[in-house]
Amino acid sequence: MLTVTQLTKVYSKQAAVKDVSFHLDGGEVVGLLGPNGAGKSTTMKCIVGLLRKTEGEIQIGGYDHLSVEAKKLFSYIPETPYVYDLLTIWEHMQFIAQAYGVRDWKAKALELLELYELEDKQKKLGRDLSKGMRQKVSICCALLADPQLLFFDEPMIGLDPKAIKNTKILFKTLKDQGKTILVSTHLIEGIESIADRILIMKEGQIIGNDSIENLKMQAASGSGLSLEDLFLELTKDE
C-alpha cells in the first residue's frame, strides 16, 4: 500500500530525514516512534505531499504520492488540527464529502459525529471549538472519505481519555476493515496494543523496524527490559 524508498529531506543544508526506506502492506497498522525532533512528522509530511522530498521515491497504492489517484487513497490527520473558523462541524463534513467525491455521506457523517460525541455540536462554528474538539472534527473528516490508508500524526494529543479510548477502538475497527494505518507518536502506550509493527526513528533515520512481538521478545531477553525501556535504550544519546 505504501512504499518509501530512500527518502531524504534537507532543510537548508541540514538533513531532517536521511535515506529512509520502509513498506506498509495493506491492512497493517504501523507505529512510527521516536523522540521529539527524530523526523517523524517530516517523514509523514513528505509522504502526504505537504513537504517536498529532496531525494527518494514514495508510492501509494502503486501511484506517485503527489498524484490525484494516490490522494484518493489516503487521509491525513495532522498534529495541530486547524479547521475553518466560519464553517460549522456539519459543513466541514459536507465540504470533505465534496472534496473526496463521497456519495451518501450523511449517515456516515452522523455515525462518526456520534462516535466522537459531536452530534449535538453539529452547528457549532470552527472558531468556537476547543483544541480537542477540533482534533475530533479532523479525525471525523479524515474517516468520512473512507480511505484505504490513514496517516495519524500524534493523534492522541489534545484528546480527552474517552476520545483516546475511542480512537484506539477505532484503530482496531479500521484494522479489521483492512485499512492500512501509519501512526506517528512518541507515546508507546498509545499504540502498543494495536500496532503490528513499529518503526523507530532517531535523528532522521530508521533505527528499528520490527513487529511488536519481536520487539517485546527482544526486550524481555535483554535483561528484562520493558518495551518502553527498549525504546529509550535505542533512542538514547550516544
Binding site: 502526504v48 490522494k71 488540527p81 486547524y82 475553518y84 465540504f95 470533505i96 472534496a99 473526496y100
Partner: peptide, 12 residues
C-alpha cells in the same frame, strides 16, 4: 492553515 490540513492532502 485549514486549507493546508483539509485541502492540500485532498485529491484536488
Amino acid at each position: 492553515m485549514a486549507d493546508v490540513n483539509l485541502l492540500f492532502t485532498a485529491p484536488v
